[in-house]
Nucleic acid binder design. Structure first.
Lengths: 198, 198
DNA sequence: GCGATTTGCCTAAGACCTTTAGGTTGCTGC
DNA sequence: GCAGCAACCTAAAGGTCTTAGGCAAATCGC
């Protein structure tokens, strides 16, 4: 080990490496020490870049939220209605399967200022974009945003917890069925007067 | 402090006290040490009753799952259809609000044998009981169980995370709206042939 | 009642993790 | 080529988890 060698740490690189670590060993096992080991650096060195363990986890959470929002925005481009609904839903589910640690990080409790600076608002906007295909007036639209979020998050996290694994029918089938049902539900809730507003 | 005095610990009492502690300070802060402090006992003493920190958390999780299942069973007695749906949903939401720490514990990842011994199966049965009011045939019924679980858990945990707090309409309204929508959805999915079976 | 055994809680100690304080060395700009 | 900043280090204190082994209180057999 060459003493005095600089690895080039930064808050960003730490968050990125932390996200990878989370996917490998689980978010709850992401630790300042583990990250220091990964960079082959002493633990105290990380504290120049990151305020605390909480700060580190928050950065990972923000990273994950951004990534998901980016994917969602891309998936929604050029889609509408049921197509958009399925696309958005699959973004969350696929992300959680590819990056379980990051997904768990995205559920990390943020303090208010971090939450405000997060991609949280973008996520809400993306749900609203999907709902444009269903012509819901307020306050129904907000209700629907919340219901959508609940189903997406609820299903994905129950699935990740292994809830649907060892029994027929397959989780894929239930997912499609649920989204179909959700689509039908939203179509039925379309505000009558809004129908012809091209 | 009187030396040699026995406090009367047991796995059950520890789990119960751990659940209380979780509600007070949050499940993630429930720790073998904190529990030892609460009983005014040395940390190592707890290890005669509980195998590990993981074991302790698992016991708290099992306790919470039992309590929720008990409440749910009671709420469903004598109810059917939409009435039953709302009752079951409210059991979860109310429990999470009254006992946030226990509710978080209930989401603690159980290993397979603990999961098998848990009230998990009872919860699934209770959802199926609600669905009896909607005449769904398999595999739709299983899909619906999963959707219900997702909405309940998803909504409750987003609400607990503060997601719906600082904006109109109120979370209560969205909850009712979502359950109404779910009820309508399930009625529309009733298997046609099953209608007259009685 | 009294010895033997079991049980309950304790001391001790090792292994990690977090966080702060303050030192040293490489890099950058003048 | 050197001043100063930034990056990484040593040191140390405090907290958590867990195991090993000890002493004393409760309990059981007689």
């Amino acid at each position: 080990m060459v003493r005095g060698e600089r690895v080039g740490l930064s808050a960003q690189r730490l968050a990125r490496a932390g996200a990878e670590l989370a996917d490998e060993v689980g978010f709850e096992r992401v630790t300042v020490s583990a990250l220091a080991r990964r960079f082959d650096v002493k633990v105290a060195s990380l504290y120049s870049h990151v305020k605390s363990s909480h700060d580190l986890k928050t950065r990972i959470a923000l990273l994950a939220l951004e990534e998901m929002a980016d994917r969602a925005a891309e998936a929604l481009a050029g889609r509408a209605g049921k197509d958009a609904l399925f696309a958005l839903a699959d973004v969350y589910r696929d992300y959680a399967r590819e990056h379980p640690g990051r997904y768990a990080a995205a559920r990390y409790r943020l303090d208010p200022d971090a939450a405000a600076a997060s991609a949280g608002a973008r996520h809400a906007q993306l749900s609203r974009a999907v709902l444009r295909g269903y012509d819901l007036a307020e306050p129904e639209q907000t209700h629907a945003v919340r219901l959508l979020g609940s189903v997406f998050h609820g299903y994905v996290s129950l699935e990740a917890a292994g809830g649907f694994s060892h029994s027929a029918p397959s989780s894929d089938e239930s997912w499609t069925w649920s989204l179909d049902a959700l689509d039908a539900l939203l179509r039925n809730r379309t505000t009558p007067a809004a129908q012809s507003t091209t």
